[in-house]
Amino acid sequence: MKIERLSQDKIRIFLTFDDLLERGIQKEDMWREIPKVNELFSEMMDQAHSELGFEASGPLAVEVFALPAQGMVVIVTRGKLNVHADDSVHDDEDADEDVYEMEVTLEQSDIVMYAFRDFEDVLAVCRRLQQSELTEDGRLFAYNGKYILALDPSLIDSTRHNALIALLAEFGEATSVTEAVLEEYGKTIINAGAVRELCKHFTF
Rank of each mutant, 00 (worst) to 15 (best):
M1G: 08
M1L: 10
I3N: 02
E4A: 02
D9G: 07
R12M: 12
R12C: 07
R12T: 08
R12K: 14
F14I: 13
F14Y: 12
F17W: 10
D18T: 15
E22T: 08
K27A: 13
K27R: 13
W31T: 14
W31R: 13
K36V: 10
V37W: 10
N38D: 15
L40G: 04
E43G: 07
E43H: 07
E43P: 05
D46M: 12
H49P: 02
E51Y: 05
G53L: 03
A56S: 11
A61L: 09
E63C: 03
G71D: 05
V74K: 05
I75Y: 04
I75L: 07
V76C: 06
V76N: 02
R78A: 01
G79M: 06
S88T: 11
V89D: 11
D92H: 14
D94P: 11
D96V: 14
E97S: 13
D98C: 12
V104Q: 14
L106R: 15
E107C: 09
Y114W: 08
D118P: 01
E120N: 12
D121P: 01
V125Q: 00
R127E: 07
R128K: 12
R128E: 10
S132L: 14
E136Q: 13
E136K: 12
D137E: 11
G138K: 00
R139I: 05
F141Y: 09
F141E: 00
A142Q: 05
A142G: 03
Y147H: 06
I148T: 03
L149A: 02
L149Y: 00
A150D: 00
L155P: 04
D157V: 06
S158V: 10
T159M: 13
T159F: 15
I165F: 09
I165H: 09
I165L: 13
A166C: 04
E170F: 09
F171Q: 08
G172Y: 01
G172L: 02
E173Q: 15
T175V: 11
T175Y: 06
E184V: 03
E184P: 02
I189K: 06
A194E: 02
V195G: 08
R196C: 03
R196N: 13
E197I: 13
L198Y: 03
C199T: 13
K200H: 15
H201Q: 10
H201F: 11
T203I: 07
